[in-house]
Design a protein around this nucleic acid. Structure first.
Lengths: 184, 184
DNA sequence: ACAATACCAGACAGATCGGTATAGTTAGCA
DNA sequence: TGCTAACTATACCGATCTGTCTGGTATTGT
């Protein structure tokens, strides 16, 4: 018990999270049934409820996984010794590339809040994500996370994601990138 | 027949659209069942299917109504003879006020695209909305809708809405407003 | 070898989904 | 007056939803 976890356990849980991440992003959360998540994961239904208390718990775990992924991804893109405009550009350019490769389905956190507006645990993860993004932008800008400059960069990052999702327009993403680079 | 529509018919259809608008925005589209829309409208279920072919058709009609509402609303806010920064400010300030009054549930078009990503008719209305917004911003800026300036204003408008929805932050909306005013 | 534990496959339950059908009521109009 | 058409109320349909339960298998540590 404790931290002991068998290889099989980890595999089932991981496959469920990977399946959920794919389906929730491609089809939306409310439009994706448990049965489909389970089948897509190649896992028994009971395994889902052994690892997660409910669908809502699965959604929250999926979002927490996405948050971890964003942190790792943005860190891997960032050169802490680079110039500020280049660091900003790297962040936005990665977004533009994923838009062009059609693997982009919008911000998982924003999407989840829209689909489950009453769910406080979802909202909590989404707000945590926004704090993390703000902190990252603050570290690039060399300012306080509550500063005007960081707020403006944050707005532009949000804008780029929304434009990419609804407008499917990588050009707008690059426009946002240009604006952000001009700010720092 | 033809354009003839009785008072009762108009009333049922209008009540259904009003009910759908309220519930789809407050609870989301997929999380709102037909029965609830009907009950909330004080209307019989058959009246829904006399006026709309399906739930999807109701969603599209709701979005078209929202589009008309946005056009009327933004026109009523706008003074075509005013200075550009004031015209931009009026648009964003109305958004900030609705955020503060807790009647704001995000952009209906963005939300619908997120909830029904496969639905082409929903996406079509959403893209129409974006063209209309672009045209309005172009008329304020006195430039072509495809110009860099209009793209930037458009990004900021998107950003303000997303920040208001997920972050519930009227301060960010006003920050976006300031940026937009500086641009024109 | 053996108990514990995760795993799989799938039936099942109760609720709710979108949508249809039935049956009776009301209002406008020739 | 009597036809038409839209209304109301409600029962019903098959499908699907989340979640539970049974029952058998494979792996694990001791």
């Amino acid at each position: 018990m404790g931290s002991t976890t068998t290889a099989a356990t980890r595999s089932a849980r991981e496959r469920l999270l990977a399946s959920a991440a794919q389906l929730f992003q491609e089809r939306g959360i409310n439009a994706t049934g448990i049965d489909l998540v389970v089948r897509n994961a190649g896992v028994a239904k009971a395994s889902l409820y052994n690892n997660f208390a409910s669908k809502e718990a699965l959604v929250v775990a999926y979002l927490e996984q996405e948050l971890d992924g964003w942190v790792q991804h943005s860190r891997s893109l960032d050169d802490p010794f680079g110039a500020r405009p280049e660091r900003v550009a790297a962040l936005f350019e990665a977004l533009a590339v994923s838009v062009e490769s059609h693997t982009f389905h919008g911000c998982p956190f924003t999407n989840a809040v829209i689909e489950l507006p009453e769910c406080v645990s979802v909202r909590r993860v989404a707000e945590h994500y926004r704090e993390v993004v703000r902190a990252h932008l603050a570290s690039i800008a060399g300012e306080d996370p509550t500063s005007t400059l960081v707020s403006r960069l944050f707005l532009l990052y949000d804008a780029a994601i929304t434009a990419a999702k609804v407008g499917r327009d990588a050009g707008l993403v690059r426009q946002a990138s240009t604006m952000a680079q001009e700010l720092v």
